[in-house]
Design a protein around this nucleic acid. Structure first.
Lengths: 239, 239
DNA sequence: CGAGCAGTTGAAAGAGCTCAAAACTAGTGG
DNA sequence: CCACTAGTTTTGAGCTCTTTCAACTGCTCG
């Protein structure tokens, strides 16, 4: 059930059998949300965190004028709101982009296993720092890259992240979002997202339709998106 | 020496005498950098982290085309690269904006005190999550706010953060940066930063000159910048 | 005094936005 | 199986914010 989660942890560090058992022991229940549902609301005080098991989820901030900024996308295996363990409440919403299932891990259990296994505390601390690294890379995109570079960068990032959990088939992966939502990630309008998408398709870099991304030319897409995997910390190291 | 650091930790949680002693014991040496110096370079493997004691530092990413995105600003008392404890190397540079002094804390010491005091592990884990929250708020600015709102938001954030360490005098605080650097934080050009600054001044909201920010009307500045302190987690809670 | 940044200004170009309508989907119910 | 609706994608045209480029001012410091 949380196999993808362990797969992802093990891409970056070693998790021994005891630690694995301790993690698994914390999963008491799973919850399910339909597409569009709000999983965690800003400022809501939490006593549990959730691991995304299936579906696509996002962190997002609603603006006063009705606009919305998507801050990060979560793929299966991600601890979507592990940061609430120390923050206690979030500064943003967590929403289900497509129908999602989550494993629920009580904060009491996180506390217990991180005290019993200090290494696990560092592994999960690392996991939140990795999310922060993704946030920073999105800052770079939003602040310093134009629309097509942002879009190319996003498709590259998701390619790598889906690949890590075995969810890439050939050069395609599922991305069940609308162009409106892509626009909300990139900080542009839906109309402009549409035109940018057409540009990338015309150039043979990538196609997106019916919720499926198909990479036409990864090398060139990476160059256009100024993409470098460094910020995803793909090397295994003892934390 | 690390008083501002403790002041900041204690704004969010209780730190007892033992924990304080453990933190203080880790500070072996301090290092000094002139304005403009690179303190930590991207990808450089680190075995220590640094607390900013005085001066202004920043996290930044250089782009291929010579442009630069400043990702976050650090004020005295901030653990500028605590995240390197679990990341091992950074995905960005740390630079001294003005002349800076740092306290050096070896990772071995961080490891020791976080294992000995699990609560301290959570306090520092929280600290990195707070940095991530700031990164996310900058994402919102860069993605969804126009130039004057971004600028207003920045001045509000720094007002609160400087206030927290007693570095606000009346309605002014020191911000030893150039307009070029402000532009690099806001993802706009220096020319546009200049014009936006003039706009805010004309509206009586805020003035900036010779490295000093003077708030003219905080309420209105907060409204223009769509600023809400929530993401700075200013309430004390047991982590 | 002159060099060299930092800040300022103007004019023109460009990226992205707004508004509005048309063309597609996909799901619903008869 | 078709008609109908609602949401998504696509297109056009004009407009705005931001950029670019280039020149000019002012400061600071050797």
């Amino acid at each position: 059930m949380i196999d993808k989660h362990l797969m992802k942890l093990r891409a970056r560090d070693e998790i021994d059998a005891q630690e694995e058992a301790a993690i698994r022991a914390g999963v008491r229940e799973t919850i399910r949300f339909p597409a569009g549902a709000t999983v965690v609301r800003e400022r809501e005080v939490l006593d549990y965190s959730t691991i995304l098991l299936s579906g696509l989820a996002a962190r997002q901030q609603d603006m006063r004028d009705g606009a919305r900024q998507i801050l990060e996308l979560h793929v299966p295996g991600d601890f979507t709101d592990l940061h609430s363990f120390t923050l206690k409440y979030l500064d943003h919403d967590i929403v289900a982009i497509s129908p999602c299932t989550f494993a629920v891990i009580p904060h009491t259990h996180l506390r217990e296993i991180t005290e019993r296994f200090p290494h696990l505390a560092r592994v999960y601390w690392f996991a939140t720092n990795l999310d922060a690294s993704i946030n920073r890379e999105w800052e770079v995109s939003l602040g310093s890259r134009d629309a097509s570079a942002r879009m190319a960068h996003l498709f590259c990032e998701l390619y790598v992240r889906f690949d890590l959990i075995g969810m890439v088939r050939g050069n395609s992966y599922d991305l069940p979002v609308t162009q409106q939502q892509i626009a909300e990630m990139l900080g542009i309008t839906a109309v402009h997202a549409n035109r940018t998408l057409q540009q990338l398709r015309r150039d043979g870099l990538v196609e997106f339709g019916r919720g499926i991304v198909t990479i036409g030319d990864l090398d060139r897409l990476m160059r256009v998106g100024d993409f470098d995997t460094g910020y995803l910390y793909l090397d295994r190291r003892r934390r």
